[in-house]
Design a protein around this nucleic acid. Sequence first.
DNA 1: CTTGAATTTAACAATCTTGTTATATAACAT
DNA 2: ATGTTATATAACAAGATTGTTAAATTCAAG
Lengths: 112, 112
Amino acid sequence: MMNLDTTFAALADPTRRAILARLALGEATVGELCAPFEISGPAVSRHLKVLEQAALITRARDGQHRRCRLAPAAMSGAAEWIETTRAFWNGTLDKLEEHLKRNAPTEKDKQP
Amino acid sequence: MMNLDTTFAALADPTRRAILARLALGEATVGELCAPFEISGPAVSRHLKVLEQAALITRARDGQHRRCRLAPAAMSGAAEWIETTRAFWNGTLDKLEEHLKRNAPTEKDKQP
DNA sequence: CTTGAATTTAACAATCTTGTTATATAACAT
DNA sequence: ATGTTATATAACAAGATTGTTAAATTCAAG
């Protein structure tokens, strides 16, 4: 989906943030993502669907597993909105431009 | 409240983001904030309550008006969570530290 | 002190969210 | 073919969210 509404909404849930934090360390299957939580599998499955629709993760079949990966591009939009708003508030647009220039081509934006 | 749940949830609504964007340009009364929207006054009033509970704005009586100001400290927490997660994903913690060091004492964090 | 403007609260309906359990699908193993 | 494992979907309930209109509050002005 990739709009700020869905991105922020997806980030508003602690379970989903925990899932993203886990995926920031490396990809994982749905089962592996379920393990740390006390909620049911279907509940996690739907959290993953929300994250996927927000373009925060991608999923690919791998045998009978489904491998999940972080797709942090969507988060950039959210971070940018915050930084822009703060920049206006601070009256320091220069620093924002600097920031964007620095973070625009994020490393090689990992995502082969 | 000042936790990531409420911050992200507050930011997930486009009306609330528009209100924050407006306030980034300078403080305003409730009436002024209502004007651009087609929704009712009470609806805006409750959006403001959500923003206040998320510590994204503060309000102070001024005669029969109530002046609203941006209080962007709460946004920092959200931005930091995103930056941290991305930093792990990129495997570049150094850049994160740099970023935090740079943005920690935000100007003088405006808020007299 | 009465009237009017600015804002909030109350009461309610419609819609979304998140969880549950039971069922379905898909791929692997025997 | 049959059973087992991994994951998704269906059906449903409880609670949150967002909007509405009507009533209450709060201050300023005449």
